[in-house]
Simulated scan of single mutants.
Amino acid sequence: MVLNFDVGFSEDENLKWRKSMEDTHVIQVPFMGDESAGFFAVYDGHGGKEAADIASAELHKFLEKELAPGKNGSVKASFMSAYEQMDDRLKFDALYMGATAVTCLIREEANGTRKLYAANAGDARAVLCRDGKAVRLTKDHKASDQEEQDRVTASGGWVSMNRVHGVLAVSRALGDHAMKQSVISEPHFWEDDLTDGDTFVIIACDGLWDVCSDQESVDLVKDEPDAQAMSQKLIQTALDNGGKDNISVMVVRWS
């Protein structure tokens, strides 16, 4: 059975001057020529937009090569390699800039199961609605996180005022090669079969999550008629809740 996708994307028009410098997004349906597959991503740049622009144009292409027939690697290994290759590609283009990334792949496998895969580096986040409950698929890689602080310190770096080297609030990202020893690109990875209770996923940069909790976001939009209305409602709620950062929100539904 072919997966049918309903995808909505919205951005904060009131801060569009700022968003235009930072965020990009990708919607690839079909993915790799497969009508039952979709790739969805949001990239949030810092220090400039170039790293986010390059990532949005190329990361899914690296993933396609890793997932190609004959590779025989796991999907997790494919995501890990794609992020590593993307980061390496930015070595000469993103010395003092970078981008957080949240990427999702939804597809029907050869055995007929429907799978959702998610990976992220940084504080952009993906949240699944499962039986009405919010399930976080990603990990916020922030310098304020104790586990990430310990990793940065072990690498020879340091954290001050909850910023890596006193500069960067995220502890993982694509790019930022001037701090690559501490700011790594290795993503968090999640995968699971989709069940009848899984209805949509919210993919957004930290501008939403700074002011809306996972469950609040799911509750706000689960009764909306389509994905575009859902994404627009989340943008407006983030603004109503005092959001000041750039806000980009994607909602993906399937049937």
Rank of each mutant, 00 (worst) to 15 (best):
E66A: 13
L67S: 01
D206Q: 05
E66C: 05
E191W: 00
D44M: 10
G98M: 02
A124G: 12
V211Y: 08
D219R: 06
V2H: 10
G33D: 08
A82K: 00
E186A: 15
I203Y: 09
K139G: 07
H25Y: 12
A52N: 11
K71I: 13
C129V: 01
Q236S: 09
L67Q: 01
E58L: 12
M80E: 14
G8C: 04
W17I: 13
A94L: 00
D198T: 01
E64T: 13
M230V: 08
P187D: 12
N162I: 06
H60F: 10
L174S: 02
V7A: 08
D196H: 06
W190Q: 10
L194D: 09
C205D: 05
I202G: 05
P225F: 06
G197A: 09
L234Y: 01
V218P: 01
A227C: 11
A229Q: 14
G47W: 04
D192R: 10
N14G: 12
E191M: 13
L15T: 14
A94K: 04
S78K: 04
F39T: 08
T103L: 14
T24W: 04
D93R: 12
E109N: 11
A169M: 07
M97E: 15
V26R: 12
L234A: 00
H177D: 00
H60I: 12
P69V: 05
G242T: 03
V7Y: 11
G197E: 06
A238M: 06
W158C: 11
A37L: 05
S144Q: 08
G175Y: 04
L59G: 00
D34L: 03
S144L: 11
K133N: 07
N241P: 04
E148Y: 02
A204L: 03
V252Q: 04
T195M: 09
R125W: 09
E224G: 06
V26I: 10
V135P: 01
S78L: 02
A134S: 10
E108S: 10
Y43A: 12
M86K: 05
A126M: 06
S248Q: 08
R89P: 04
M97W: 03
L128N: 02
D145Y: 10
